[in-house]
Amino acid sequence: MATEALIERILATGDEPSTSVIDTLHELVNDATIDASTAPKGVAEAAGLVGLSTHTLRYYEQQGLVRPARNASGYREYTAFDLRRLVFLTRMRLSGMTMHDLKRYIALIEQGASTIPERRRIMLDQRDRIKRQIRELTLALETTEYKLRAYDGHPEG
């Protein structure tokens, strides 16, 4: 699902007190557009579904972040698993996670359950970075709002 559509859907659920954003995100990542019975997608269709360019999709492959199978004709086929991983990668990149951290995280996933404590640490660190970004953006928004209020009164500056 494209980032804009994801954000709109999450913001729409923000008014519903019984629905958490995390539950909504989980539903979106696992919704009917990316369920286990979803037929494999080609490069262009997969890129469109998750809101990436085909160039970015191929870059993620080159970096070892996603490894789609190939069909009998040699074309890449992205399974529901691959698509869900791409959604995750997209959200983490949007939040500022570095490629180095993403590669480390995916390598840990592929090593199995014994790496869960380290994966959790990576996610805790990422959560801290995101919270800091939110605080910084909130300050930037407040500064912008201040300037807009000042311009409504037309003072200099």
Rank of each mutant, 00 (worst) to 15 (best):
M1Q: 08
A2L: 12
A2D: 06
L6N: 09
E8N: 15
R9A: 07
R9M: 03
A12I: 01
A12D: 11
D15M: 12
E16A: 10
P17L: 08
S18A: 08
T19Q: 13
E27A: 14
L28V: 08
N30E: 11
D31N: 06
I34R: 01
D35F: 00
A36Y: 02
A36S: 04
S37L: 08
P40S: 09
P40Y: 06
P40D: 05
K41N: 02
A47R: 00
L49T: 00
L52M: 09
T56S: 13
R58H: 05
R58K: 03
Y60W: 02
Q63F: 03
G64L: 10
V66K: 01
R70G: 03
N71D: 13
A72Y: 02
G74Y: 11
E77N: 06
F81K: 05
R84N: 06
R85Q: 12
L86H: 08
T90A: 10
R91M: 11
M92K: 10
L94D: 14
L94S: 12
L94H: 15
S95K: 10
H100E: 12
R104A: 04
Y105P: 14
I106T: 09
I106D: 11
L108V: 05
I109W: 11
E110H: 11
E110S: 11
Q111T: 11
G112S: 07
S114H: 14
S114T: 13
R121Y: 04
I122Y: 12
I122G: 13
D128F: 07
R135P: 05
R135C: 09
R135N: 11
L141A: 06
E142D: 10
L148R: 12
L148M: 11
L148Y: 08
L148T: 03
D152Q: 13
H154V: 12
G157S: 15
